[in-house]
Design a protein around this nucleic acid. Structure first.
Lengths: 230, 230
DNA sequence: TGTTAAAACTGATAAAAGTCATTTACAAAG
DNA sequence: CTTTGTAAATGACTTTTATCAGTTTTAACA
């Protein structure tokens, strides 16, 4: 089910939305469709980037490992998103790893192909620039919240982030299967601490859990707890 | 002493290093030279950006204020650096404030001037893109360190950052006058905690202080403590 | 369906950092 | 040169979060 760029679901929303039909065809001829199992490494911290990934399906975490083995998630990536462009632009080694949180499919576009495209299509280049500015803003938000908010608030925020990132069906109650370990490295705290506050949220009827699956029952309460708007 | 773009000290190192002489002249005719006293606000969180700042002299902190009044410094800006481009690119309100840490001089370039330049000169646009990628990488580093390192290590890192950013004379011992309040909001901790660890560093002969002036005596020790390389 | 490994959960305790109160040092102004 | 306000420094204490050790639940598989 190797998808074609010209008929891709994300043709009008991805980084390549301003590509001509010709450019898309060219991309399509030179891309490489890849499948990753849950937990599999897509690229690894310290390696040289060979190109760009365009996620077609699944969930990906971008994270860095500390010397003590602790992990910090920097960004969550969903289908339609681009992955691995920062190192490519900077022409540096990957400073973080990308790991599939679910079975994931992604197209790979070589560095030369990518560079040629941004050199030849000004719109793509300026979309890329805006994307960088947006991601920089998001990262600054994360930094500030990490420095200023207690874990309980950050956990509420993380759950809302997961919902806003991965809830496409907009079903009544959003559910996601995520290990407490992964959740704790999004929040930037210890696994046990996440579990404790999750238990609080359960008692308060804000979420429910079944194994590693978390269901958000009261997003409004989470928004309140996160104090994102004050 | 309104400096001219064509003879500016940073002509070959700034974001505008790839501008033609004509473009620089045009910039020069349309820029506006501003002076800010220590502590003065250059731009304020929540306001609409009207243009770009190019710092000619001085020191600037870019920071965000939490609802509880606590401040987190996102970035330190030195002479030759550009300031306020993220909001401009994203076409959004400032998400942070810029405040002079010292008496500062900066040229202001209007948004239309800036946009015209990056539309007409591809090299400037791609330099800007690389700059964004670089700053994003730096911010991710800060995020990870904030999440994983204890205050003592982050303080060592902050002192090294101040040195690498503001030490131009490369004199034997770098000194900087900075309030403990400002230092603590770079590190992301409380003022008293910074003071305590600074006292430790003094006892260990790593730094010395006189009032609010801090002198780094053993940068090598700080590098060790910061554990930046493991 | 029992077995087992892994992950979720809980409790006790320790460590790290924050807060508040107070003293000391510094620098500007009279 | 003294006064005075501000910032640095220190101490006592509290809160938050991490760590460690253990128990229970879950899910995969024989």
């Amino acid at each position: 089910m190797n998808p074609s760029c010209n008929t891709c679901e994300f043709k009008n929303s991805s980084l390549f939305k301003n590509c001509s039909s010709d450019e898309l065809n060219h991309l399509n001829d030179n891309k490489c469709f890849n499948v990753y199992k849950k937990g599999q490494v897509i690229f690894h911290e310290g390696n040289r980037p060979l190109g760009l990934f365009c996620v077609f399906n699944g969930k990906v975490k971008v994270s860095r490992l500390g010397s003590d083995g602790k992990e910090q998630v920097i960004r969550l990536v969903k289908k339609g998103d681009t992955l691995g462009y920062r190192s490519l632009i900077e022409n540096s080694k990957y400073s973080a790893s990308a790991i599939a949180l679910d079975d994931t499919e992604a197209c790979f576009i070589s560095a030369s192909e990518f560079n040629h495209l941004i050199d030849s299509n000004v719109k793509v280049a300026s979309d890329l620039m805006r994307m960088l500015a947006k991601v920089l803003g998001d990262t600054q938000d994360k930094l500030v919240h990490l420095a200023m908010k207690p874990v309980r608030e950050r956990l509420a925020e993380a759950l809302l982030l997961l919902k806003s990132t991965y809830d496409d069906k907009k079903s009544e109650h959003f559910s996601i299967s995520i290990s407490r370990e992964d959740l704790s490295s999004i929040v930037g705290t210890a696994k046990e601490t996440v579990i404790r506050f999750l238990s609080e949220f359960k008692e308060e009827g804000i979420v429910s859990t079944r194994g590693s699956e978390i269901t958000i029952l009261r997003a409004d309460k989470l928004l309140q707890i996160s104090s994102l708007y004050d």
